[in-house]
Computed example of a mutant assay.
Amino acid sequence: MIGAAGHCISRFIPDLPPAAAADVPEGEADSAATIVMISDIASFSPIAAVQFMQPDGWMVVGLPANFYAQIDRHVVSGTLLGESADVRFTPRAFDWSYGDGTSALVGTAGGAWQSLGLAEFDPTATSHVYTAEGTYVIDLTVLYTAEYRWAGGPWTPIAGHVELPANPLVAQATSDAVTVLVDRDCTRGPTGPGC
């Protein structure tokens, strides 16, 4: 695999299935066939994910803070081994470092509580509970699998993966959260206290 700085990195990634072998019709394979390695696509850079959190910029000690990313499969065009080519990057794993010495490697980008049909502070596959007050830097590295094609031909998988960091988040964990009771629904009285 190739890291963001172009250095080779090695680690076990449980959420990434091995790349499938390219389909080569019987009798058409020869010893001169081109094999594209992950290092060959170093000039093709995937789009970086954008990381978000809820609540935005702060956490309540003892309650889940929700982290999620936005990134989709995408194609980058360029020159591969001297030929015009496309490389398709698919985000396959998300490696969160929560800034308190813990991390999580998951196979989902997560989502906002509302989009997941959850209430605020419900746990998610990408949430984290902080146990101490303080300021934390939350880092996310996205692991992409890659495929290539020449001249609009079929996609061929490349063994390995590419890692790219998302934007870091800086957030404050506090245990001084205050709740406010209101006398009506905030949709009916959106200017009321706590709305």
Rank of each mutant, 00 (worst) to 15 (best):
A125V: 06
V60N: 12
V106R: 10
V106P: 08
P154K: 01
I2Y: 00
D185H: 07
A65R: 10
G82Y: 11
I2R: 07
D100V: 12
M1F: 05
S97E: 15
G57F: 00
G78I: 05
L81G: 11
P46M: 09
G117C: 00
E133I: 08
W58K: 02
D15A: 15
C195H: 11
A21P: 09
W96F: 14
A151F: 10
F67E: 05
A159V: 15
F89W: 08
L81K: 15
A33K: 15
P193E: 14
F12V: 15
M53H: 04
S43N: 08
E28F: 01
A104H: 00
G107N: 07
P46W: 02
G3T: 09
E147S: 09
A159C: 09
A173P: 06
E120S: 05
A85W: 00
V36E: 11
H128S: 12
V75A: 03
C195W: 12
G78Y: 00
T124N: 04
M37S: 09
V178M: 12
A42R: 15
V162N: 00
H128A: 08
D95S: 13
A146W: 00
P154E: 09
L118M: 12
T179H: 01
A159I: 14
N167C: 03
V142I: 04
P168I: 05
I158K: 13
R88E: 03
R11P: 02
E120M: 13
A93C: 02
L105S: 14
S127L: 13
S127F: 03
G78E: 02
